[in-house]
Amino acid sequence: MSTSAFDMAVTQARDLLRWHSPLRTELWAARLTAGLEPDRVEPFLRELAEDGSAESRLTLVALAAVNTAPSPDSRPPHDDESMEAYARAAEGLVDTLPEWVRRMGQVVCEGACYGKADPYGEQTLAVLSFRYENGKEPHILVVGIDQPNGGLAVDALVEEVKFLDDLGLEAADPGVVGGRILDAFELGDRIMGAAVADTLPDVRPLAIARARGVPGLVRGPGDETVSRFDELPDLPGAREAFERLAEFIGDRPLWWSPARVSQFLTAWLPREAIMSDAAVAAMPEVVRAWSRFSGDQPAVLRQIDEDAPRLPALMADDSLAGLAKRIAQNRL
């Protein structure tokens, strides 16, 4: 962080002291965090501490508010030292600033939503609703979670509550949604070069801080979508066929696109699944039923019509079987 950048931060903090907005200040601090290279954190904090002005003190307190220490079982190792530095630099400063500064980070989670961001569920939206303890500045955190690439966070924003009106998401347990958000960010931290929105880094620190503060967090939560499916066709082999489908769907059941349907019918089943003739015969209707349950998208149903007739021949072609399937077949 250069001296000119320090001067800019102090100038912006001066404006924030006039706004009296905890939310605006936390969003600013998150952006400030995103612009700090790890090796510049402590020098920048020292410069603020040495300055000692109200603007510098506000900056230190705001940075600490959006860089809260995680629980020991989910701590990203590369964040440890920086987070501890933020906390140390802000010690004892909040009482030297206006009363509204104390509200930063002091929010109540009022609910959560979760669901598809697009017709095929290739991205899901995890939403947490908050307001400050004094009832002011209600807001929502919205995190976009990519499904084809394993469930990593690809975008995030903080919006007014009315933003929910057009999303069509279902209410969900806040602890589960908070856990999904933290899991999605931690997965993204482990994947080098993951494609994410340009806006994500500026919101990431605040998003993680908000999610960590949700009571009753559930890490690695399951998804009950498959268990809610009750439209299984009355056909011989249908239950067996659905068990294979559920195995393929795994922990990302909202993602159901034409490409994923085709992968299941023409690649995964021939490579991985051992099924009875009855289950093979029932599979197209089982997949159609699941597709209707998953949004009844015409393009998905057309893909089933295109690929399903080939399934018996593909399942009979032993050359398509993967190693695990061949080993299992030899044990039968």
Rank of each mutant, 00 (worst) to 15 (best):
I140W: 01
A126Q: 00
E306Q: 09
P258E: 06
R292I: 09
L206C: 04
R18C: 00
A172H: 07
S21W: 05
A126E: 08
R288G: 00
A211L: 01
H78M: 09
H20E: 12
M283E: 06
R244L: 11
L60R: 10
G213R: 15
V61I: 13
D317C: 02
T25P: 09
R180C: 03
W268C: 06
K162R: 10
P76M: 09
H20M: 02
L141D: 00
A112L: 07
G250Q: 07
S4C: 02
P77G: 05
D318I: 12
W100D: 01
E26T: 13
Q303M: 14
V287K: 02
A211W: 03
E133N: 10
T199W: 01
R46S: 03
A328F: 11
V226P: 04
G193W: 04
Y114R: 14
G322K: 01
S319F: 04
A112R: 09
A238C: 13
G322C: 15
L187W: 06
L48D: 10
E42D: 02
P309Q: 09
A117L: 14
L45V: 05
S2F: 14
D317G: 08
L320C: 13
L301K: 07
T25M: 08
R219A: 10
T25S: 13
E243W: 06
P138S: 11
A289V: 05
V158T: 00
Q297A: 10
N67G: 12
D7V: 15
N330A: 15
V66H: 10
M1A: 15
W100R: 08
R244Y: 09
D146V: 07
T3P: 13
R228C: 02
D146F: 04
D189G: 04
E110F: 12
P76Q: 11
M275S: 11
S21E: 05
R57T: 09
R302V: 04
Y114S: 07
A87S: 13
P98Y: 12
W100Y: 11
P253V: 04
P233H: 08
L301H: 10
E306T: 13
E55F: 05
P77H: 03
V203P: 01
L320G: 13
G35Y: 03
E186M: 12
K136N: 03
W256D: 01
A65N: 04
P119W: 04
A313R: 09
L23K: 14
P221K: 04
D230W: 10
R271H: 15
A65W: 02
S2N: 13
V203G: 05
S291P: 14
Q12C: 09
A29R: 07
S21Q: 06
P309N: 11
L97I: 06
P205N: 07
A289Q: 05
A85W: 07
R57P: 02
